[in-house]
Design a binder for these strands. Structure first.
Length: 465
RNA sequence: GUCGGGAUAACAUAGGGGCCAUGUGGUGGACUGCAGAUCCUCAUACGGGAGUUCAAAUCUCCCUCCCGACCCCA
């Protein structure tokens, strides 16, 4: 069984073969930091977080890089409105990004390069592209990539240059030799943030930063390049051209693109104004629920965002969490019974098989529900041993390193166990003497403290809410 | 228009030639002082049309519709 990845470049699912055995170099496009991130960004972040974690789980040594675009028109405009320097604005939203990422349980990338701090690499690359004859300096000091110089434009987009040119809505730019040419260096307008370059003061075009940062941090060629599918054209297409203009080699072997989050059938985006900030959503739903919501569907599928959908995710996840809590309760009980080896191994195999199949997290979660059904049954008839419960729990913790959907806090608080034993015993006496009012009050007040008491045929059980 | 991804029960989603898919919600039971959880049970499916096949939700072809990309975007 081996990992398969849907490659946008070929449009097919392919066996994953890394450049260096046992190692993976992955670059995931980050965000332009001029505002808080929204749920669409969250989807991409959670998806690739799962991808990176699964690669590591599978034994690969992964180097993961995600960039920040911190120099750009929108940042400049926002900064002007706010009356602060652009890099101060972007620095602020980088801080907010990390705050939100943490709230979503996103693991840290190895490096987070910024455009503003990669200027030497960028300028060197622009110069190299010019030297190799793929770009030209315009009268105003901007540098444009000459798309007609490459023979196979559109490999990722699966369209020919002529197709695109005839359908494009590109504003006429007198500086360009061909209207499909794109800026890799933009000359500065008066008073605008800029860096010195051989072509005068200016700043990088949007696509060049990724090409330059990948090259300086990961080398000429990487294994996986990821991002939202809205980046396929022109961003990723152009990254390919820029890098190849220097190296003569393909930039990445596998291109992965996540599907868009939609609101009422329309893409969630800043420009449409239909976005929900991670901050708002994270204040109402815990990170586990948000992660479950996104991972409960394949990363490439479109997903329609709604509060109802999150509520449903919350209800669904509760089933898994209840099962997890019940297993913890059984594990504490010191009971005899099945060791659950077969069930756990079956679930692990099924889980891995799904993720190996183009990171099908939905299928992996389905395996968890199947396992929960089996263990619930065993819990209901008391046929699972404490060791068995612990075995299942340990498996769930193992895979949760990737999914991040189970409760994060530990439950092995001996003191709490003892206190609960006492409370349950006292409440039992009350119930025996039919003092239900008092018994219920104990239960209600424990609920306020996020501890759930359940009266079952096998005695009283408790778990955290 | 050109490219890409889709259409699966009430809803949200997996699957991808034959075998009881998963969850939410709904039905009826079991358990139960109540509540909750859990178990059992039932119902509702593969956009439309041709074809291939012993067998199609799954393969092929055609059609319809939806979303996205083609200016910025995760």
């Amino acid at each position: 069984m081996s990992l398969k990845i849907h490659n946008t470049l070929t449009g097919k699912k392919e066996d994953f073969v890394p450049i260096d055995q046992g190692k993976v170099k992955i670059y995931v496009c980050g965000v332009t930091v001029y505002d808080d991130i929204h749920m669409g960004h969250a989807r991409s972040m959670i998806v690739f977080d799962m991808v990176v974690k699964y690669l590591r789980y599978s034994g690969y040594e992964v180097t993961h890089i995600t960039n920040f675009t911190d120099v750009d028109d929108k940042i400049i405009n926002r900064a002007n409105e706010a009356g602060i320097p652009p890099l101060e604005l972007s620095a602020r939203y980088i801080r907010e990004y990390f705050r939100d990422a943490e709230a979503l349980g996103i693991g840290r990338a190895d490096i987070y390069p910024k455009a503003s701090e990669s200027m030497d690499d960028i300028i060197a690359m622009v110069r190299e592209i010019i030297d190799n004859g793929f770009a030209y300096e315009a009268e105003d000091g901007s540098v444009y990539f000459s798309v007609r110089k490459v023979k196979d434009y559109g490999r990722l987009t699966h369209r020919s240059l002529d197709d695109m040119e005839s359908s494009g809505r590109i504003a006429e730019d007198p500086m360009k030799k061909d209207q499909m040419d794109f800026a890799i260096w933009k000359s500065a307008k008066p008073g605008e943030i800029s860096w010195d370059s051989p072509w005068g003061k200016g700043r990088p075009g949007w696509h060049i930063e990724c090409s330059a940062m990948i090259r300086s941090h990961l080398g000429d060629k990487i294994d996986i390049h990821g991002g939202g599918n809205d980046l396929i054209f022109p961003h990723h297409e152009n990254e390919i051209l820029q890098t190849e203009a220097c190296t003569g080699e393909p930039l990445a072997n596998y291109w992965m693109h996540n599907g868009m989050l939609q609101v009422k059938g329309e893409k969630m985006s800043k420009s449409l104004g239909n976005f929900f900030r991670v901050k708002e959503v994270a204040s109402k739903y815990d990170p586990q629920t948000i992660r479950f919501y996104f991972l409960n569907t394949h990363y490439m599928s479109p997903l329609i965002y709604s509060e109802d959908a999150l509520e449903e995710a919350s209800a669904s996840l509760k089933r898994l969490v209840n099962n997890y809590r019940d297993l913890q309760s059984r594990s504490r009980a010191g009971a005899a019974g099945s060791d659950m080896v077969a069930e756990t191994e079956e679930a692990r195999a099924s889980f891995r098989e799904s993720l190996d199949d183009d990171f099908n997290s939905r299928g992996a979660i389905e395996a968890l529900f199947v396992l929960a059904k089996k263990t619930n049954k065993a819990l209901a008839d008391g046929s699972i041993s404490s060791e068995g419960a612990e075995r299942v729990l340990s498996f769930l913790r193992e895979i949760d390193g990737m999914l991040g959907i189970y409760p994060s806090e530990g439950l092995s608080d001996d003191t709490l166990d003892k206190v609960m034993d006492i409370l349950i015993a006292i409440r039992g006496e009350l119930r025996k003497s039919k003092q239900y009012k008092m018994a219920d009050e104990i239960r209600d007040r424990l609920a306020d403290a996020d501890i759930v008491l359940e009266d079952t045929a096998d005695g009283v059980k408790w778990k955290r809410a």
